[in-house]
Amino acid sequence: MIELEPFLLRALAASLALAVVAAPLGSLVIWNRMAYFGETISQASLIGIALGLFLGIDITAPVIAVTLAMAGLLILLSRQKVVPLDAILGLMHHGALALGVIATMRLSGPGVDLMGYLFGDVFAVTTSDLYWVFGGGALVLAVLSRLWQPMLRLAVHEELASAEGVNRNVIKAVFIVLLSLTIAIAIKIVGALLVIAFLIVPAVAARPLSSTPERMAVLAALVAVASVLLGLGLSVNFDVPGGPAIVLVMALIAGLSVASAALGRRT
């Protein structure tokens, strides 16, 4: 019987939990066409990391605060009509990344493991991180299960859902809070640059194979779980970074899924 080291068990537990949480949320991100929005929020998490390191506290709470602040700012800026939203997202995306990198290096000193925060270090997950992942993940899933139908209806047809009584402002705000929380608890696993990929790539893989939204969320979770197992195996056996290995497997599965669906339609 193979005995797993404690650090590997923590990495496996955190990654699998995040895979299950990210699948339905990532599906909603795709349905709402908010991938670039989520990417911009994830880049802002570096500013929260710098703040947490500067204050000498766990980075999760500052990252949540900063990502929520960035989401609120993006919502406000999206209401102006001078510059298109995609241009605003491009501006904030690169600006937040640049500020986050500079702030992390300046406030934390030259010895900071910037690569770990950019791409994650799943094998450095601590017991405290597991509390955040399982506690935050349970909260996200509980809220999603309660508001799944309103969120889905808004994604399908926002105006119709609003006319039928769905409070789109409240539902959108809750969704953004859930997205920010998930990004914050995923930072140590896949890093600021790859966290949104962890959310949306399994959903991309599941979409061609799904006839209902619920089936897509379940298949996305299965793809994510399989990618975690294969990615961590790849990392352990070939000495490659864990987070990027997981995302690479996800991307390969998604590529095969989309390619097979496209070829199937031609025949």
Rank of each mutant, 00 (worst) to 15 (best):
I2Y: 01
L8Q: 15
R10K: 05
A14F: 09
A14W: 07
L16I: 02
L16P: 03
A17S: 15
A22S: 14
P24S: 12
G26I: 08
G26L: 04
S27F: 01
I30D: 02
A35G: 14
E39I: 09
Q43A: 08
Q43H: 11
I47Y: 02
I49W: 01
G52D: 03
G56N: 05
I57N: 05
P62T: 01
I64D: 06
A65N: 07
T67H: 08
T67S: 15
T67F: 10
L68S: 10
A69G: 03
G72P: 02
I75Y: 15
L76H: 11
S78T: 05
Q80A: 07
K81A: 13
G90S: 09
G95N: 00
L97Q: 07
A98T: 08
V101A: 05
V101H: 05
A103Y: 10
A103Q: 08
A103H: 08
P110A: 15
M115C: 09
M115H: 13
L118H: 00
G120V: 13
D121A: 12
F123T: 06
F123I: 05
F123R: 04
L130G: 03
W132K: 04
G136R: 06
G136H: 07
G137W: 11
A142W: 05
S145D: 03
R146Y: 15
L147P: 06
L154E: 13
V156G: 04
E159D: 15
A163E: 08
E164P: 09
K172P: 03
K172W: 14
A173S: 07
I176V: 15
L179E: 06
L179T: 08
L181T: 05
L181Y: 04
T182W: 11
A184V: 00
I185P: 00
K188Y: 01
G191I: 10
A192C: 01
L193I: 08
V195A: 05
L199A: 03
L199G: 05
L199M: 02
S210N: 07
T212S: 14
R215E: 13
M216D: 04
A221R: 02
A221Y: 01
V223Q: 01
A226W: 14
S227K: 06
V228T: 02
V228D: 02
L229T: 04
V236T: 15
N237T: 12
P241T: 10
P241I: 14
P244H: 10
I246T: 01
L248P: 04
M250R: 07
L252M: 13
S257D: 13
V258M: 04
A259Q: 09
A259G: 07
L263H: 03
R266D: 09
R266G: 10
T267S: 10
